[in-house]
């Protein structure tokens, strides 16, 4: 018997009203987050990865964005059908989020300890003194040196990496079971990036929470993620165990992304990037949205939109939305 997933998203669609018309920023995306696992959601700008997270968190920009269909089930409860007030409390208590830019998510005029403590005061009814003590403890937990002294500092007195640690402390305050981190290290220097990824991985293990890491950087999550979900133009195009997907990419887009990253070792060869540019969501190509950029495209790709499906000869949980997935996997074997 398999345990039910912590989060189950089915056929999610999100629509945005823009000056040029309606855009389907997320189009029929389904995925699960299992209890305690780390899922990497990967894609370039416009892929819909952040919008998917916003839909789960109930923070879509209003009134432009709205959920146009699908279900989001958290721990057996349908977040889109339940009483909004109860869902809001659930999102505060059990599902937390960390954003790319900590400076714009922290209030510049309040001391950081007060802001972290607010979580305990508001959600747990803690006293000021208890909330402050809890804030210091959390700051120590996320690796802020001299936490007891710095608890009364303001956000601008911290470096970018330290501010991101403060955001993580706030997200962890209520001991969530699901943490969604949207590009948590993108604005940080590489040495600090490594520190934050390590911290997130350690905290996930210690807390036993599930972690969703949203990023454009295939490298930063390779060490810590269990599974990967790749998105392109609002669709899920490939999913599976992270090593399986990276080593045996079955979607030409995944393969193109891998080939676009310069190596840190090995010979320096000319890069073979995906040609062209991501499509305009207002005027998506017919059939498979990726076909104009795809070296494998055939007439079938221009007519039929492929669905996410198992790939012959690969583990069952490895799925790709490509008519030619087997051919794509085989191509890799020829080259090796």
């Amino acid at each position: 018997m398999t345990e039910s997933p912590l989060l189950s998203v089915r056929d999610l669609s999100v629509r945005f009203r823009t000056g040029g018309g309606h855009v389907r920023a997320v189009d029929g995306v389904s995925f699960d987050v299992r209890r305690g696992e780390t899922l990497a959601v990967l894609g370039e700008s416009g892929s819909g990865k952040s919008v998917t997270a916003q839909a789960v968190m109930g923070i879509l920009p209003k009134p432009a964005g709205e959920i146009a269909g699908g279900t989001i089930v958290y721990d057996g409860r349908d977040l889109l059908a339940e009483d909004p007030n109860r869902v809001r409390r659930l999102r505060g208590d059990e599902i937390a989020m960390v954003f790319q830019d900590p400076l714009s998510s922290l209030n510049p005029v309040f001391r950081v300890g007060w802001q972290i403590g607010e979580m305990f005061r508001r959600h747990r009814g803690a006293s000021r003194r208890a909330a402050r003590a809890a804030a210091v403890e959390l700051m120590e937990r996320v690796g802020i040196p001299a936490a007891a002294r710095r608890v009364d500092d303001f956000p601008h007195q911290f470096s970018g990496g330290m501010r991101q640690r403060i955001m993580i402390a706030m997200a962890l305050a209520l001991r969530p079971r699901l943490l969604i981190a949207d590009e948590p290290t993108t604005a940080l220097d590489v040495t600090v990036q490594a520190q934050i990824m390590r911290l997130l991985a350690d905290l996930r293990r210690e807390e036993g929470m599930a972690l969703v890491l949203i990023t454009h950087d295939l490298g930063v999550v390779a060490d810590v993620a269990d599974r990967a979900l790749l998105m392109y133009a609002g669709r899920a195009v490939e999913t599976g165990g992270i090593r399986e997907v990276y080593d045996h990419a079955a979607h030409p887009y995944t393969r193109g992304l891998m080939a676009s990253i310069p190596d840190l070792d090995g010979p320096r060869e000319r890069l073979t990037p995906v040609r062209g540019a991501p499509p305009n969501l207002l005027a998506l190509p017919s059939g498979c949205s990726f076909h104009p950029r795809c070296p494998h495209a055939t007439d079938r790709c221009r007519a039929d939109d492929p669905v996410l499906r198992a790939v012959d000869g690969r583990p069952a949980e490895h799925r790709a939305a490509c008519h030619h997935a087997e051919e794509v996997v085989a191509g890799e074997r020829e080259r090796v």
């Binding site: 990036q193 950087d217 490298g219």
Partner: peptide
């Protein structure tokens, strides 16, 4: 500290 896509 540089992340590599396929560390394994």
């Amino acid at each position: 500290a540089v992340p590599v896509p396929r560390p394994w």
